[in-house]
Design a protein around this nucleic acid. Structure first.
Lengths: 126, 126
DNA sequence: CAGAATCCTTGAAGATACTG
DNA sequence: CAGTATCTTCAAGGATTCTG
């Protein structure tokens, strides 16, 4: 409802401005990974693999690469005899903390309403 | 890094507490839909279909059903000769506004850093 | 240990009709 | 108009195996 639009609407109205962020922050598995790194601190690959949940090494690697590329996670390679690799949150990754906090807040205060809406909807028209 | 854990770690560490919210708020197309409803106000199905972007009626219906079931969107059916259905954001849906604002803020202040991280990463190891 | 390679399955999304 | 009904595609995700 704010300003009508600086670009009237030629044809494709830019859907919504936060869409690009979603691919960065809310791709599947990224929040569990960031959460685990934030709460368990620096971890090696296998630890992470255990702590995050039911994730396979392949997918974990994919997501870690993406997070590393986006600068949210720092990967440290130690060239030792069994190789050792450690992952930790970057400052940029930590900048997401207030966002996640806001999400948690919304969850605690409004998730019950969602649950109620669901049961109401489901009991209305089976 | 906060408390080590009230539940030591029996086996499955609950991945991260915001995961359930993501399915509610950040399923694909939900943010463009909510955004459009928020900025263009109450709309009928076809308007919405045009305003949201490249979405097909089928998918739009699916997402609208989900949003309605979760209580984020209100659907009003007018039994007229050509049927008329209108969609609008509910108060519960509007409660997401601060969250989206936080997301927008993070985007404006940190997206450039992500871009830089990406180019740095890409130019490092081709 | 930290992945890379391979194959496979699934499910969401798109395209295209059709209907009350 | 506001969807529903099918059909098809396609890529993410999972399972498994292998290696520097």
């Amino acid at each position: 409802m704010t300003a009508p639009d600086s670009t009237p609407p030629p044809n494709v109205p830019r859907a919504c401005p936060i869409t690009p962020v979603l691919d960065i922050v809310f791709s599947r598995w990224t929040t569990p990974i960031l959460w685990t790194l934030h709460h368990h601190g620096r971890q090696r690959f296998v630890e992470l693999n255990r702590n995050v949940g039911a994730i396979t090494p392949k997918v974990l690697t994919q997501r870690l690469r993406q997070l590393e590329r986006d600068g949210l996670v720092v990967r440290t390679y130690h060239p030792e005899v069994p190789p050792r690799v450690e992952y930790e949150i970057s400052p940029l990754g930590l900048s997401l903390a207030p966002l996640f906090a806001a999400l948690t807040d919304w969850s605690t205060s409004h998730l019950p309403a969602v649950e109620r809406a669901r049961t109401a909807f489901d009991s209305a028209g089976p």
